[in-house]
Design a protein around this nucleic acid. Structure first.
Length: 500
RNA sequence: GUCGGCGUACCCAAGUGGUCUAAGGGGUCUCUCUGCAAAAGAGAUAUUCAUCGGUUCGAAUCCGAUCGCUGACUCCA
C-alpha cells in the first residue's frame, strides 16, 4: 500500500506538533470537516478551506487509504450576535426575504455545490445536514444532562463549562485558560440564563416569532451552535475518529466546544488529529463577510469586483491557492493572480504535451537522466506526505515540465530513457496534477465550430507564409491574438494555439 | 487585556539546526531557436532570511528582546 511506503506526517493542532499519521483502522481513514452555513453565498475565503481539505482527501485516497469524508451543511442553529438575540441566521434571512427557511437553505446549498464543482472540489462521501439530525442532537443533549454536564433553564439547555473543566481541560485545543475567559470580555447580563458566561447553548427555546423550531423534552426550540458537528461526526465516523478539519477561525470556541461535548457525553477523546486551514487575506486582512472585503467566486471569474483588475479562471485560482501551504495565511492580490495564471498555463501546457508524447520503444538509456526522472516521483510523494505541502509539489512539477518540454522540442531524445521509466514519469506527472492537486485544463471554449473556424484561418495563414506574404500572415496572427487566440508556429511548420 | 501566528529577492512563495554559497513561480536582462512573433531551452538576478543580542563546532531555522503586520477571545472557512 502506498501509504505504508510514503507515510504522511501532519501538523496536529491539538499538540502543535508534526506527527506521523496512524489511523484507527489500518488502511481506513475517517475525516470530518465543518461545512458551510447556507444562509448566503460562499466567498473565496470559504472556498480556500474546502479546497485545502479537498487536496488532503484527494492525496489520502491517492495513497490508497479508504477515506470516508464527512462534510456537513449547517442549515440551522448558528445564533447571531447580541442585537438579534436568539434568532438564528436561516430564520432571519427567511423572514427578510419572505421565503420559507428551507427555500433559503436549498438555494444556497445548490449555489455552494455549483461553486465546488467550478473549482473541481470533489463532493464528500457524506454530506449530512443539521436539520436532518435533530433527533440525534436531542439525544446527546439528554445524555449530557444525565451525565451532569448540562442544565436546563426555561426550555433552554446549556453546557456547564466550569463543571467540565474540573476534571477535564476546556482549552486543550485552543490554549485558552478558563480563568482568563471568565474575567475578560462581555459580562453576564441580568436576563441571561447561563450560570457562567463561558457556558454555551446546547438547545435554545424558540420564541414566538422563531420560524425554525422542533419539539423537544424541553419544549419547542432549536439546537445550539456546536452540537450538530459533534452529532454528525460521531454518528458517521465513530466516537473517536481520525481527522477533524476546519478553518482556523473555528478553533475557538467551536472546536473547543465540540471536544468538551464529546468528552462529556462519551468519556472519549473524539479526534486524534486536528487540522486547521489558515485564512485568505485581502491587503493583509482576513477575508470575511462582516468586514465587507470578501469576493464571490462569480465576481472573481468575471473580474467584476472593485478590487479586481480583471477576471481569473477557477483553475488559476486553484493553482494560486495550492502555491502556498494550507497552514499559512494567503494574501490575495491581482499581481499574484496574474503570475499564477502564467504558471498554471505552463504546467497545463506541459500536461497536454506529455499526454501526446509516445515513447519509441527502443532506448539507449542515459543513467543520469533516468535517475533524475525516477527521483521526481519520489519527490512528489515526499512533498505531499510532508504535511500536504502542495507548494513543494508544484515546484517538482515545474521541473518535470521542463523535462517534458525538452522531450517535445527534441533537446533531449525520448530514447535516452527506457519505456518503463518514461511511463512512470508520465503517470506521476498526470496523477499528481489531476488526481492529487485537482488541476485540469481550464474550461476551454472547446466548441467544434470555433476550432474549425480557427483551422480555416490557420490554413490561410500557412499559405500566406509559403508565399512569404508575411504582412498577411502576421495580420491573421495579430488579429486572432487580440481576440485571445494565440498561434504558435512549431519547428516543422506545425501549428498549435491556445484560447484565453 | 488573555491566548496565538507571521515578517525570506522587485512580487508571490517553500524551507524551521549541517545536503542552504536558500526550492519553485512571476518579473527583469542576455543568449539559442525563429522570416518575425509566441512557446520552449541556456544563463544572470538574496554571501542572505525584520532588527539586535544569545545558545551551538554549526541557525533563516532554537532562546530572549525590540519593531512591524495579523488571527481568536462575538457569527465566521
Amino acid at each position: 500500500m502506498l501509504f505504508e511506503k510514503y507515510p504522511v506526517h501532519l501538523t496536529n493542532s491539538l499538540t502543535g506538533r508534526k506527527e506521523r499519521l496512524e489511523t484507527i483502522v489500518p488502511g481506513h481513514l475517517g475525516i470530518y470537516v465543518c461545512g458551510p452555513t447556507v444562509y448566503g453565498d460562499v466567498h473565496l475565503g470559504n472556498v480556500r478551506t474546502f479546497m485545502m481539505f479537498d487536496l488532503i482527501t484527494r492525496y489520502l485516497r491517492f495513497l490508497q487509504y479508504r477515506v470516508r469524508y464527512v462534510r456537513n451543511i449547517t442549515d440551522v442553529g448558528h445564533l447571531v450576535n447580541d442585537a438579534d438575540e436568539g434568532e438564528d441566521k436561516i430564520a432571519k434571512k427567511a423572514r427578510a426575504e419572505q421565503l420559507e427557511p428551507m427555500e433559503v437553505v436549498k438555494h444556497y446549498t445548490e449555489g455552494f455545490h455549483h461553486v465546488m464543482r467550478q473549482f473541481n472540489i470533489l463532493p464528500p462521501s457524506i454530506e449530512p445536514s443539521a436539520t436532518g439530525h435533530i433527533v440525534e442532537q436531542i439525544e446527546i443533549v439528554k445524555k449530557l444532562l444525565e451525565n451532569g454536564f448540562a442544565y436546563e433553564v426555561n426550555g433552554s439547555v446549556y453546557f456547564d463549562v466550569t463543571k467540565y473543566n474540573k476534571d477535564h481541560n476546556y482549552g486543550i485545543l485552543s490554549g485558552r485558560v478558563l480563568e482568563d475567559l471568565m474575567e475578560s470580555g462581555r459580562k453576564l447580563d441580568a436576563q441571561d440564563e447561563k450560570r457562567n458566561k463561558v457556558d454555551f447553548a446546547l438547545w435554545k427555546r424558540a420564541s414566538a416569532y422563531h420560524i425554525m423550531r422542533w419539539p423537544s423534552p424541553w419544549g419547542e426550540g432549536f439546537p445550539g451552535w456546536h452540537i450538530e458537528c459533534t452529532v454528525m461526526s460521531t454518528k458517521y465516523l465513530g466516537e473517536t475518529f481520525d481527522i477533524h478539519g476546519g478553518g482556523i477561525d473555528l478553533k475557538f470556541p467551536h472546536h473547543e466546544c465540540e471536544i468538551a461535548q464529546a468528552v462529556a457525553a462519551t468519556g472519549k477523546n473524539p479526534v486524534n488529529y486536528w487540522i486547521h486551514a489558515n485564512m485568505l487575506t485581502v491587503n493583509g486582512q482576513k477575508m470575511s463577510k462582516s468586514l465587507g472585503n470578501s469576493f464571490l467566486p462569480r465576481e472573481l471569474f468575471e473580474g467584476s469586483h472593485a478590487l479586481l483588475e480583471r477576471g481569473y479562471g477557477p483553475m488559476t485560482v486553484r493553482f494560486f491557492m495550492l502555491q502556498s501551504h494550507y497552514s499559512s495565511t494567503l494574501d490575495f492580490s491581482n499581481e499574484a493572480l496574474g503570475a499564477a495564471e502564467k504558471g498554471f498555463k505552463k504546467l497545463s501546457n506541459a500536461m497536454v504535451i506529455l499526454k501526446k508524447l509516445q515513447h519509441p520503444g527502443t532506448a539507449s538509456p542515459d543513467k543520469l537522466l533516468t535517475e533524475t526522472l525516477t527521483h521526481y516521483t519520489e519527490d512528489l510523494y515526499a512533498s505531499m506526505s510532508d504535511d500536504f505541502n502542495s507548494a513543494r509539489t508544484l515546484a517538482v512539477l515545474f521541473e518535470m515540465a521542463s523535462r517534458i518540454n525538452d522531450f517535445k522540442s527534441g533537446n533531449v531524445s525520448l530514447s535516452s530513457v527506457d519505456a518503463d521509466t518514461f511511463e512512470q514519469f508520465k503517470l506521476s506527472y498526470i496523477g499528481f496534477m489531476e488526481d492529487v492537486l485537482g488541476l485540469k485544463e481550464e474550461e476551454e471554449h472547446n466548441h467544434d465550430l470555433l476550432n474549425n473556424v480557427i483551422g480555416v484561418l490557420i490554413d490561410l495563414r500557412k499559405k500566406a507564409r509559403q508565399d512569404r506574404n508575411f504582412p498577411l500572415s502576421d495580420k491573421i496572427r495579430d488579429d486572432l491574438k487580440k481576440m485571445g487566440v494565440q498561434l504558435m508556429d512549431g519547428k516543422e511548420g506545425e501549428m498549435s494555439y491556445t484560447i484565453d
